[in-house]
Design a protein around this nucleic acid. Structure first.
Lengths: 209, 209
DNA sequence: TAGATTGTTAATCGATTAACAATC
DNA sequence: TAGATTGTTAATCGATTAACAATC
């Protein structure tokens, strides 16, 4: 289905396409041309067609694209319909917010465990799941084989836990910490979320406009 | 200080340089060459030198770069030492976590007000600041002229509040909502933070490795 | 059929990498 | 001075845009 190596630039646009098509679909729009889609998203029509053509031929000459169909194709390409299991590490303000804010099921993941090292939190329920002690992480992973970890812990603890998790078979990270996983483990898949980088980028733009 | 138009790619690397140099500095590293810095960050030496040269000549032939000096230069370029005022809109799980998790002062911002439409939250203290009613947003902005808004509200409310804020003089947004501000207001500066996009990108990578 | 719009190839643009003279 | 490393120009690579034949 996927033709050759897909560039990072293309990959990063896929979630946006998926979101947009979802909105169109829920608004009852049945078909859309690359021209109109690009106009609505701020891309060029060429880019839209090039992007889709990385993965197949989803349109029809003279007609355009079927919104629902295209959305589902992209969802499939994104892997949303074959979820990966995930554990969350760290349930401070941030972890709790992320756990409660995001419906992992909609984005290709199934959250199977939530961990914190703070014993006072252990047993508390978050998203219908008990917070578990980090002390039981090894045992849990050997039984449940989570594929992904969502790291909501500070840099200091992140390094050690990451090592542990990788040993236990975790191959992907959603990393909110400032520990640079990708540098130490080049074969592991990492997506970083750094608010502070976003803030600084915004600061740059405000200061240099 | 800034030479010609700086590309987005360069800008997005600046916060990372800043962070790295901060760490080096706190480890007591006084000087570093483009070669070593690039190796530690996963860039090429050429790129590092090209990036810095967008803004000036911060190094010295045969020596390299003074870590502390370079860090401060980049901090300056990022505008971190001339903070912009910011308000936070929405203090649900996410807003609260962001407010408590991020030290805005370190990243070029001064948080001057926190707002929520839910009257039951009004008056509660977050980060030594009372949560204010969105009903008082107009009044507050006319008095305090915040330059930036951090949007931690759902898509549905975001559209209206954004319109209001822009009318009141806000020119920058850190946008956690899925409302696409940049499309409706091309002259406003927006940094989007979309967890779900990061999750889907990770899902793609896991599914297509 | 005629009009619209795709899929795809070619042209352009921009970003990254390589090379090296300048110089500390 | 000799060695190291910058600043900068030139070469390469990759991504975006334009163009158009294919075709629904």
């Amino acid at each position: 289905m996927i033709r050759g190596k897909i560039s990072n630039s293309v990959i990063r646009r896929l979630p946006r396409y998926y979101r947009f098509l979802g909105e169109l679909s829920s608004k009852g729009v049945a078909r859309i041309s690359s021209g109109e889609l690009s106009a609505r998203m701020g891309f060029t029509a060429s880019q839209v067609r090039q992007d889709f053509n990385c993965f197949g031929e989803f349109g029809q000459q003279g007609y355009g694209y079927n919104v629902e169909l295209l959305k589902n194709e992209i969802g499939g390409i994104l892997g949303l319909y074959t979820p990966h299991t995930a554990v969350m590490i760290g349930v401070g303000n941030l972890g709790r917010a992320v756990a409660q804010h995001i419906n992992f099921n909609n984005f290709g993941f199934q959250l199977t465990g939530i961990f914190d090292q703070k014993e006072s939190l252990v047993g508390q329920m978050v998203k219908n799941m008990p917070i578990r002690s980090t002390a039981t992480l090894d045992e849990f992973c050997r039984e449940n084989h989570p594929q992904v970890a969502i790291l909501c812990i500070p840099k200091e603890s992140a390094e050690l836990v990451t090592k542990q998790l990788i040993k236990l078979g975790v191959t992907g990270f959603l990393n909110f910490s400032h520990y640079d996983i990708a540098l130490d483990y080049p074969n592991v898949l990492v997506e970083n979320v750094h608010f502070s980088d976003s803030l600084m980028t915004l600061s740059y733009k405000l200061s240099n406009k």
